[in-house]
Design a protein around this nucleic acid. Structure first.
Lengths: 137, 137
DNA sequence: TTAATTGCAAACGTTTTGCAATGGT
DNA sequence: ACCATTGCAAAACGTTTGCAATTAA
């Protein structure tokens, strides 16, 4: 994670306490977070951080490819680290949990869509809705 | 389509000119429409229809299962008729066009996710992003 | 020193709401 | 006549912006 912070500096950006906290919050979270949630968590450690600062930093970190966000379903945007492996999201409609599964799962679909419709699918980061194991039982 | 309007009445709702126009607009559209776009189109035929009326009717029609809406990607919600066949959306990142493909395409994925993660995927209405044939050439 | 970054407050676009007036049934 | 529905205006919501003050480099 430190090397990732170095990456920010290397690309010509300053490292402020706010930026570092926001970054750490997204990176150490066990689940995807909304900007609002990130804001709350950051505030607990450094009161007075402004919500617009959170948004600006999330944008920057996303531009740098360190985090990303998606609007899964009808919900607001949720941010999470860019994990090394490309993945899909399994979003539980009941409890809201998000599980990640590898892209190779979708490879047959990608091939079929390409040959049948000429559509070049980007199968990184997309959402499959349903009900997770826990909520099913 | 008339039988669908009857369906609205049968379920105890009144049929107003506004409601009918909104419904027809969604149903005869060749593409998915935002609430704003539906509002514009309705207004051309019946000026003075309020945007909040559009939203309220879209909600109602969605509750009745006659139309549905999705937030594909980071965009605003788009409405479209509930087509008889369940489908996925192929959303072009370049031109924004939306193509529908049948669910059977994803059946292998559904089975695999279920057995591997215990996740019961609902594969109706979801979005696959990429570049369509036209924009690729 | 100085340009990037911040906090603040105000604007933004989309969607929702309260309420009195209207109009389907 | 009744109550669902409407128009209107205002609020709510998540997000973005302009600007002057601050601060990392």
């Amino acid at each position: 994670m430190d090397e990732l912070l170095g990456e920010v500096r290397a690309r010509g950006h300053r490292m402020t306490p706010q930026r570092q906290l926001i970054f750490e919050t997204v990176y150490t979270a066990k689940k995807h977070l909304t900007a609002e949630e990130i804001h709350e968590r950051v505030r607990k450690r450094f009161r007075g951080v402004n919500l617009s600062t959170v948004y600006r930093n999330l944008d920057l970190l996303e531009d740098l490819g360190l985090i990303c966000h998606a609007h899964l379903g009808h919900s607001v945007g949720q941010y999470h680290p860019t994990s090394g492996v490309e993945h899909q999201h399994l979003v539980c409609r009941v409890c809201g949990s998000i599980e990640e599964v590898g892209v190779q799962l979708m490879e047959p679909v990608r091939k079929q869509v390409l040959s049948r419709s000429g559509f070049e699918a980007d199968l990184t980061h997309f959402a499959i809705f349903g009900i997770c194991r826990r909520c099913r039982s």
